[in-house]
Nucleic acid binder design. Structure first.
Lengths: 130, 130
DNA sequence: AGCCATATACGAATGTTTTCGTAGACAAGT
DNA sequence: ACTTGTCTACGAAAACATTCGTATATGGCT
């Protein structure tokens, strides 16, 4: 019992993000968020269709007890991140997690506090090994 | 003069990987590599078509001076990694490079030597700031 | 009851990616 | 010169993803 869900498409990921951050939402709510954060409007029925497809794929589940259905994610944000990172590591970093880390650290601004957090994590990892 | 190349598709990325690691190659060579590393055969003309499209997109260039054309990547592996990492950070990590790093470190085995390398990089970053 | 705003369902147009069949060119061997 | 194997070009089918028009249902207001 491992892989139950297919990989979300790009649009589906965008919608999942909204559900993760906003909590269970109606089509209207999702669509509104989409349209404030994007310059090019996306039609209401487009969003509806996406959510219906996502429900078919089991990526989300919906409460249809009221006229206005409420959708909620069926997969965890963290698991999704994990899968995508894993895919990226395998696909473009030849399986080396470190190469990805170096890349990410080198090319994106990271605050001193964040660097500290990473150092702490490395500490923990090192302790676990010994 | 910045963005000249479109984002490679999944299949195109796979092929680029081969070109990066094997160097300039013929269709036959690329196709062979594809078929040893994958369980499901991919047809020769499929690979040919991919490379032709990639040439149109300017992702690769080809030497047509001999009957058997030789393809080579037009983009750097590192730049491609950079773009993909950037995209992933924005799309699923809310813009936080650190979150991605934590995710990658936490979920994938990293050797002590690799951890050392990362620590060194962090050192450098900290020095730069001060 | 009748109207209006808003909901879902459905199907189809459009766009993109992946796959491969078929045709014609060409080089090498006989 | 002919056959055979391998090459490129081209086009189109198949698969997948995105978008939206239209039909129909429903709840709330007058």
């Amino acid at each position: 019992m491992a892989k139950q869900h297919p990989r979300p498409t790009e649009s589906e990921l965008t919608i999942l993000q909204i559900l993760w951050s906003e909590g269970p939402s109606t089509v209207r709510e999702v669509n509104n968020v989409l349209n404030v954060q994007k310059e090019n409007e996306v039609g209401y029925t487009t969003t509806l269709k996406h959510l219906q497809i996502m429900a078919e794929k089991n990526l989300v589940s919906r409460d249809t007890s009221t006229r206005t259905h409420v959708y909620k994610p069926n997969i965890l944000e963290e698991d999704t991140q994990k899968n995508l990172v894993k895919g990226l590591i395998e696909k473009v970093f030849g399986g080396s997690a470190m190469d990805l880390v170096m890349q990410a650290l080198g090319n994106h601004n990271t605050s001193p506090e964040e660097l500290d957090k990473i150092k702490k994590l490395i500490q923990e990892l090192e302790n676990k090994k010994s």
